[in-house]
Design a binder for these strands. Structure first.
Lengths: 137, 137
DNA sequence: TGTGTAGATTATAACTATTCTAAAGTATTA
DNA sequence: TAATACTTTAGAATAGTTATAATCTACACA
């Protein structure tokens, strides 16, 4: 309830009009206690489960792209057919379970910071992503 | 010249019939001194530049998948629209230049080995991939 | 409180990368 | 050389994503 107001403000502050659809997607992505990973397909399914009114696929894509551009969510490189997104925007890395097609967070205390002893002239580092692929024993 | 014989053997040993198309793709991928990164699209262009006879797209896909399965090449997760492949199959990491859409190898002496202090029950680590995204200053 | 307008949503068409299909071709084995 | 299993190929099919153009809505301003 209170959250809705927060989302309205949050959206407005970042220059996005607080539409019904965007607020609903905010609720789904940011109301839970835990952060999580999702594909467009996942999000689409969750929306149709939790909502009576439908949100069109185009709007889901638009909204996810807008939220990505505004830094509400992060994209994760897994190189499968589907793109994955993460509601946890802090720096962290991932396990990728190739059998379950599932991402698992690696917490800061579970990995040493990655140090790169090289610079590319004229370039700055935007992100360092570690993906640990695991499979059944 | 001599290389062709090697490729015939190499293919045969791994259970792939040494067809004209596969040998040609071997030459393109493995004859140069340096390893390199490519997308299907890149490879397709190189083939049409260096070859008189055309190789169909389906065969290029089939061959790349076969070579991937046999471990001749590696896949790189970059999460762009296109998949990238690497003729360097040793463990190593990458810079990804977001302005040029280009991968650059990170050599072993340029990065500390990544240590993961956590195990996933019933799972073994298949690979650890580090992708350092860089952009213009 | 209306009204104009820029921004948003929508259904659907279009696009692109990839996979499938089934027919024709080729390497291999006996 | 003949039989057969594997390959290649063009083109159709598929799936994820983006573009389009019409309709709708939030919001600034009168």
């Amino acid at each position: 309830m209170n959250n809705n107001l927060n989302f309205v403000q949050k959206l407005r502050i970042s220059g996005l009009r607080p539409t019904k659809q965007r607020i609903k997607i905010c609720e789904i992505l940011f109301c839970g206690k835990e952060t999580f990973h999702f594909s467009i397909n996942d999000l689409s399914k969750i929306i149709s489960q939790k909502t009576n009114e439908k949100i069109s696929l185009a709007t889901i894509y638009n909204t996810v792209h807008a939220f990505l551009a505004k830094g509400y969510i992060k994209q994760i490189a897994v190189n499968s057919e589907q793109n994955y997104y993460d509601t946890n925007t802090t720096d962290h890395h991932h396990f990728y379970d190739e059998d379950k097609n599932q991402l698992i967070d690696i917490h800061d205390n579970e990995v040493e910071p990655v140090k790169i002893n090289r610079k590319i002239p004229g370039k700055k580092i935007k992100s360092i992503e570690v993906l640990v692929k695991v499979q059944n024993n």
